[in-house]
Design a protein around this nucleic acid. Structure first.
Length: 557
RNA sequence: GCUCCCGUAGUUCAAUGGAUAGAACGAAGGUUUCCUAAACCUUAAAUCCAGGUUCGACUCCUGGCGGGGGCACCA
């Protein structure tokens, strides 16, 4: 419908001599202004040298002819907007034809193969809320992209080598723990190692040495490894496996999964080789024993890629990762990488370096920054003991949800819905302010609000006879006009990679449904058949919308 | 110091350069012989400051004030 309108406006403008004037077709904030509005007359006023009202009148006339029975009215309003209100029959027929499958899907990306990286917790550390945020955003974005026809390959990438691993391993060895099984043991070991690293010169030296030893042991062929290497690697594998198993539990709870789990230990050799090769070509330079990328030439920071000890930093590993993804997951049309916004500067330098090494890889890579979850009670820090782990957040919210829901499955769906909505309701990239005292909202602007609206609609449908298509009431409900916008909302959310657009829309939709529900008797009321069709269309829309966000739908509430 | 991002009701967030800046929480009041009151209906309440561009500015530009991130051997 919107496309048809755009085309009609374009044609009309062409006839009036305003060929290349850009214009927009938008949804008036107030439904009283119609279903669509265009600023075309305002935009064309200057180039045509005529008054906006005059052009708007002419344009409205042309649109009336072009749209025919589709439009109930085409009116000029305000300074020169042209508002189009859809005809009752056009709306009703759109409501009747909402498909049971695939409603709101598109084909804009149907030929594309896309890698989406998110969550990315490090082994040897507990998953914290940042990784949960990333997982929620990444899963929703992946679904929104898939909805436009693309094949999305989800991947997560973690640092299974590096100083943080050395700290954990060092502490585990100190305690004589050769087979750590729980994330808690590993998390504590990491904390102890970090502490020792800062407090003791001796420990620092040992940990640095251990870090290098691990890199070296990994780089050797199995036959070249010493007993010491093998023992270190075994401990390392135990720790990594235990961490990954714990992360898997949380990913499951969040309803996400990965097609590829990639590790820094795999990207390290590729990254080092690529950086060394590029060093010879002058992409990197040596400075104080380290290999650095001089970002100043592109207005960026200068960053170390290979340290003076010969170990790679995560920028070098990311170079390796770009190649590894292409090799393992490719061919890829686009590569999305989600990280915390604080890494923006680092990412720019990485991308600048990559564009010098492999421009085709850099060109298709896009960074998706996300904010932090911040506490109203102050900054999270392990010293303060107010760090929220992913597991802790989830179990806390489930406890809250359980107060109203005895059924654990329902409580879980409500809790996960609440967490996901909290993260997805606002534009990704900004911090989320979380008040642990108030916990999080299960009323109003919340995940459960959306779930509840859907559960009620389904309940009505379950109790009613099969919807019969009888006459629609003369005046369309606001709910109807909102429902038919869904495909366009989904399309825009993908184009702008903005899951919150879906969340915002669904909240408005749920509000409109709740209002309709409260003010209209459906079963046994007037126009029962049509109202049931409307309830069905609403339920399908909400269901699809929640699905795009990855928010589960409980059977009842 | 350099650089990036942000500043909207008491609070947490929306608003592709458009019409009367929209929700929710909180506040005040109301709604249940009727399909689930996690709901609905009312009311009060906001664009940091000063310029500029534009028919039109929360949005773009300049300057200020305030907050946050980043700035080489962590990730």
């Amino acid at each position: 419908m919107e496309e048809m309108l755009s085309l009609a406006i374009r044609t009309a403008l062409d006839e009036m001599g305003a060929e290349n004037v850009p214009f927009s077709v938008e949804w008036p904030a107030d439904l009283a202004h119609g279903d669509f509005a265009t600023n075309a007359a305002l935009a064309a006023a200057k180039p045509l040298g005529r008054s906006p009202r005059e052009i708007a009148d002419e344009l409205a006339g042309k649109l009336r002819d072009a749209l025919g029975e589709q439009a109930a009215s085409v009116e000029v309003a305000g300074p020169g907007f042209v508002n189009v209100t859809l005809a009752r029959d056009a709306i009703a027929s759109a409501i009747r034809s909402v498909p049971a499958e695939g409603w709101g899907s598109g084909s804009a990306r149907s030929e594309e193969r896309i890698a989406f990286e998110y969550s990315c917790p490090n082994p040897f550390k507990e998953m914290h809320v940042g990784h949960v945020m990333s997982a929620v955003i990444g899963e929703a974005a992946s679904r929104i992209i898939e909805n436009q026809g693309a094949r999305v390959l989800r991947d997560t990438y973690g640092g299974d080598v590096g100083p943080h691993v050395a700290k954990a391993l060092w502490a585990l060895r100190r305690k004589g723990n050769e087979n750590p099984a729980t994330p808690k043991e590993i998390g504590e070991a990491y904390a102890q190692g970090s502490h020792a690293y800062e407090e003791s010169e001796e420990a620092k030296a040992e940990i640095d040495a251990l870090n290098v030893s691990l890199y070296e042991a990994l780089a050797k062929e199995e036959g070249e490894r010493s007993d010491e290497d093998r023992a270190l690697l075994e401990l390392w594998r135990h720790g990594r496996d235990a961490s990954l198993a714990a992360h898997g539990v949380i990913w499951d709870a969040l309803g996400t999964h990965f097609d590829y789990i990639l590790h820094e230990s795999e990207t390290t050799p590729i990254g080092i080789a690529a950086v060394r090769e590029a060093l010879e070509k002058g992409v990197f330079v040596e400075s104080q024993g380290a290999v650095i990328y001089n970002g100043e030439k592109k207005g960026l920071h200068t960053l170390v890629f290979l340290t003076s000890r010969g170990t790679p930093t995560y920028e070098a590993k990311d170079i390796g990762l770009a190649f590894l993804k292409e090799e393992r997951m490719g061919p890829l049309d686009r590569v999305y990488i989600t990280t915390a916004a604080e890494q923006k500067g680092h990412f720019e330098v990485f991308l600048a370096a990559l564009s010098d090494i492999a421009p085709e890889l850099a060109a298709k890579t896009k960074h998706v920054p996300h904010g932090f979850l911040r506490l109203t009670t102050g900054k999270m820090s392990s010293r303060e003991g107010n760090v929220i782990t992913g597991a802790g957040l989830i179990s806390e919210i489930i406890d809250t949800a359980q107060e109203k829901n005895e059924d654990p499955l329902v409580a879980k769906a409500v809790a996960i819905g609440a967490i996901k909505y909290m993260i997805l309701r606002q534009a990704a990239g900004g911090d989320i302010i979380f008040d642990p005292e108030k916990s999080l909202s299960l009323d109003g602007d919340s995940g459960p609000y959306l779930q509840y609206a859907l559960v009620r609609a389904r309940s009505v449908l379950a109790q009613a006879q099969k919807p019969e298509d009888i006459e629609a009431p003369l005046e369309p409900y606001a709910l109807e006009r909102l429902i038919i916008r869904f495909p366009e909302v989904a399309r825009r959310a993908e184009a702008e990679l903005a899951p919150h657009k879906v969340a915002q829309y669904l909240t408005q939709l749920a509000g409109e449904w709740n209002s309709f529900y409260a003010n209209n008797r459906i079963i046994g009321g007037e126009h029962e058949g049509y109202k049931l069709l409307l309830a069905r269309a609403f339920a399908l829309t909400m269901e699809r919308g929640l699905n795009l966000l990855g928010i589960p739908v409980p059977e009842r509430m």
